[in-house]
């Protein structure tokens, strides 16, 4: 079964979502996509370039609007939600990890790690210290992002996201910019921490090898769900 919806206590429910971008040859990037995610569940979203997987991830993270359908995140319907409401969800419920790391260049590692949690008002110093140690960043806390390797930057990005103790972690090709060894190490850490904390994970990837390590998989083709294993 490619998609399920309508389950009770779902953390994320996506139903018949349609999304188009403006332009002279506009066509839907997502064309009636539906899926659900339970608390603690891990799901890989695969597909070719342009299939709409990153767009779906962004809609799930309350980062963008959609044209039709329904998305409910932690019980809050996103359709019609204003900018403030969306920002509130991003501060409390979801956290994001991007392929480009997207750390804040003007803050050192320690402040980057704590930043999201502090924005959400849930800073837990012992948890952050634990994360820092687990992620192997203890010796790097005073460094700035430009002084770190790609793998180190991505570990900081994961730490920043999990520092919030989010209900849902959204990761877009988190190892795409890393070599295989560094990528595997980062993925191992992320999956371990997600499992430890009971955080749900929606991960976008090209790689069947990475997708195979998650609890479920959904494949997108031309904006539609084209198969998967739940």
């Amino acid at each position: 079964m490619a998609a399920q919806y309508g389950a009770i206590n779902m953390l994320l429910e996506i139903r018949d979502v349609i999304k188009s971008f403006e332009g002279p040859h506009a066509r839907p990037v997502l064309n009636g996509v539906s899926l659900t995610l339970e608390p603690g569940q891990t799901l890989a979203l695969t597909g070719e370039s342009g299939s709409g997987k990153s767009t779906l991830l962004q809609l799930a993270g309350a980062l963008d609007d959609f044209d039709a359908g329904e998305i409910t995140l932690d019980g809050t319907p996103l359709m019609g939600l204003d900018d403030k409401g969306r920002a509130d969800l991003r501060r409390r419920v979801v956290a994001l990890v991007f392929q480009q790391f997207n750390l804040i260049p003007s803050l050192d590692v320690a402040h980057n790690l704590a930043f999201h949690a502090r924005l959400g008002g849930v800073e837990d110093r012992s948890w952050l210290a634990h994360l820092t140690e687990r992620l192997g960043l203890s010796d790097l806390v005073t460094r700035f992002p430009e002084q770190l390797s790609g793998g180190q930057q991505q570990r900081v990005a994961i730490g920043r996201a999990l520092g919030l103790r989010p209900k849902l972690l959204l990761a877009d090709e988190p190892t795409g910019n890393l070599d295989q060894i560094a990528g595997d190490a980062v993925l191992d850490l992320m999956l371990e921490l997600v499992a430890d904390t009971g955080t749900a994970l929606l991960l976008v990837t090209h790689s069947p090898r990475i997708a195979a390590r998650l609890g479920a998989r959904v494949h997108l083709r031309d904006g539609r769900i084209d198969g998967g294993e739940m």
Binding site: G61, L63, D83, K84, R86, A87, D88, L89, R90, R91, R92, A95, L96, N102, L103, I104, P105, S106, F115, H116, L119, G120
Partner: peptide
């Protein structure tokens, strides 16, 4: 934009 977008993604509104 590359400096502001991550902060926006982490939960700040564009207006703020």
């Amino acid at each position: 934009l590359p400096q502001l977008a991550p902060v926006w993604a982490l939960g700040l509104t564009r207006a703020r």
